[in-house]
Each structure stands twice: as structure tokens, then as C-alpha cells.
Amino acid sequence: MYEGCPVDLKMEKVVSIDAVFDEEVHCAKVYKYDMEEDFIRLLLEGENLSVISLDAKYECVIGTKTELLSCSGTVKERFQCEAGDMLIFKIENGFYTVSSDGK
């Protein structure tokens, strides 16, 4: 459904006491969206997997041809595969449309 769409992934808060808050926006691309399980497989672009924390909540903004969609969730897995650096992102509360001014 959103396969191939660009994604901006930004940390919202850390879950673990010893985790470091990351203010960077990380670029990825939707590899596969599983609507029934509320998972998105993301291909991380141009960065090392270790920059993505498994102990944090992230905002995921997907750019489609017609709109920007936002959701919150956590990265459950991160690994390398033939397709590239893969993130398994668990959506927590559905998608919201983001207005053109970013709010």
C-alpha cells in the first residue's frame, strides 16, 4: 500500500533510563506495510542500524503522492538482509494526516 514511499523517522522519547535521546531525523523507505498486524518494514537509507534505538518511541512520517501520514510506534527489530538495513516498526495508534505546514 505504501511500498516505496519515503519516510522520516524521528525519536519522540526514550523508554530506557540509560538511553540517549536522538534529535536527528532518519530517512527510510517503506519496504512493506502489514495492515492486519500494524507493522511497517522500513529500509534505512544512508545510516548505520545502530543509530536506531530499540528503547525509544518514534514518529514515522510517510510521504505519499497526495499527503503526509504520521504514526507513532517503536522499532521492534533491526537487521541487515539482502534488501538492505531493515527496521520492523510497530504502529501504536494508527495514522494521522499531517497538514502541509507540518502540524
Rank of each mutant, 00 (worst) to 15 (best):
1 M>V: 15
2 Y>L: 12
3 E>T: 14
4 G>M: 14
5 C>Y: 07
6 P>T: 11
7 V>L: 01
7 V>Y: 00
9 L>G: 02
9 L>Q: 03
10 K>I: 10
10 K>R: 15
10 K>W: 04
11 M>T: 00
12 E>F: 10
13 K>A: 12
13 K>Q: 15
14 V>D: 00
15 V>H: 03
16 S>D: 04
19 A>N: 07
20 V>W: 05
21 F>I: 06
22 D>E: 14
24 E>Y: 06
24 E>W: 11
28 A>V: 00
29 K>M: 11
29 K>Q: 13
29 K>C: 08
29 K>G: 03
29 K>H: 06
33 Y>A: 07
34 D>A: 13
35 M>R: 13
36 E>T: 15
36 E>L: 13
36 E>R: 15
37 E>W: 08
38 D>W: 05
39 F>Y: 14
39 F>M: 01
39 F>Q: 07
39 F>T: 06
40 I>E: 06
40 I>C: 12
40 I>L: 15
41 R>T: 05
42 L>K: 02
43 L>M: 09
44 L>R: 02
45 E>W: 04
45 E>K: 09
47 E>S: 14
47 E>P: 09
47 E>M: 10
48 N>S: 11
48 N>G: 04
49 L>W: 06
49 L>V: 09
50 S>T: 04
50 S>G: 00
51 V>D: 01
52 I>D: 01
52 I>N: 02
53 S>Q: 05
55 D>H: 09
55 D>P: 01
56 A>E: 02
56 A>R: 01
57 K>V: 15
57 K>G: 02
57 K>H: 05
59 E>K: 13
60 C>L: 12
60 C>D: 01
61 V>K: 07
61 V>C: 03
61 V>A: 00
63 G>E: 08
63 G>T: 14
65 K>W: 11
65 K>V: 14
66 T>W: 10
67 E>Y: 10
67 E>C: 14
67 E>R: 08
67 E>T: 12
67 E>M: 12
68 L>A: 05
69 L>D: 03
70 S>N: 01
70 S>D: 00
70 S>Y: 00
72 S>P: 01
73 G>D: 02
75 V>T: 03
75 V>G: 03
76 K>D: 05
79 F>T: 08
81 C>A: 04
84 G>Q: 02
86 M>W: 09
87 L>S: 03
88 I>P: 02
88 I>L: 11
90 K>R: 10
91 I>S: 01
92 E>T: 07
92 E>R: 12
94 G>P: 04
94 G>Q: 05
96 Y>F: 07
97 T>F: 14
98 V>M: 12
98 V>Q: 11
100 S>L: 13
101 D>Y: 06
101 D>W: 05
102 G>P: 02
